[in-house]
Design a protein around this nucleic acid. Structure first.
Lengths: 135, 135
DNA sequence: GCGCGAGTACGAAAGACTTCGTAAATAGGA
DNA sequence: TCCTATTTACGAAGTCTTTCGTACTCGCGC
């Protein structure tokens, strides 16, 4: 991973396309990839991913349509945890600093990110306040 | 993918130890790893990492002491960018949501994370104001 | 100076990943 | 029905990773 996850690099490329599209045929995925890869190569990867339980397929006309089974967010979470542990020394703060420098969010996104932090405070407050409410 | 970077999974394990310790001998790194790995295996990885320019070594007594050359933050940044692109659909907000659910920060850390976002607003304000100042 | 033990160098074996060639199957139209 | 184009199935080749065994080296103590 310089596998960020449970997936290998190429598998992650494929999953990325499926997550973005929602689902796709072999040709769809092939088109969605950044870099040119043979048709049967993509098919093979999808078959491997299916063995691993990461995707499933259904017939569509004479072709197969593949759907992701594992959620993007779950995969991302695992990868983030690994990154946090190995490179950011467990510090969410450092990770955030790097995150925003990699992809500077616009004002609206910053506002929503603040909201996420506010929500954290609220949750912390609630659990600390449980005793008071119950009393 | 799990490769999160330029490094393979095992390489990242090794680099993680070096980043944490600052530097270390082969034995130090071996001890620092979660999982048992042969001494020569660790040595070999370090030699490979040195070929790649990720670490350097200096003599210490009869042994070598290895120092990381690449920064943890840089590696983390690359990995974050990949994650952002493939699994979080380019949204720093989604990444943050997952980040805090993976490693819930305490109040002090939340405060510092807010500060990072504040800093972003400040920067955005400054650059928007550049024209006015120049005019 | 010599020997011993700690350490490094080398290379090969095993396994995983990636890629694709070729064969087989299938559906639709002539 | 039969042919063709599209698609899947299989499997093997090439490459990269990971692991470690074995041989060599070097420095320190006697």
């Amino acid at each position: 991973m310089t596998n960020p996850t449970d997936f290998t690099d190429r598998e992650l490329d494929i999953m990325g396309v499926l997550w973005r599209l929602g689902s796709g045929t072999v040709a769809d995925v092939q088109d969605g990839l950044d870099r040119p890869v043979g048709y049967t190569t993509v098919l093979k990867q999808l078959q491997i991913l299916e063995e691993k339980g990461a995707v499933r397929h259904e017939r569509q006309g004479r072709a197969y349509r593949y759907h992701p089974v594992t959620e993007a967010q779950e995969t991302g979470g695992n990868a983030l945890r690994r990154l946090l542990d190995t490179v950011f020394d467990g510090s969410a703060e450092m990770a955030l600093a790097r995150l925003v420098s990699e992809a500077p969010p616009d004002a609206r996104e910053i506002a929503r990110m603040r909201a996420i932090l506010d929500e954290l405070d609220a949750d912390a407050g609630e659990s600390e306040g449980d005793d008071e409410e119950e009393a």
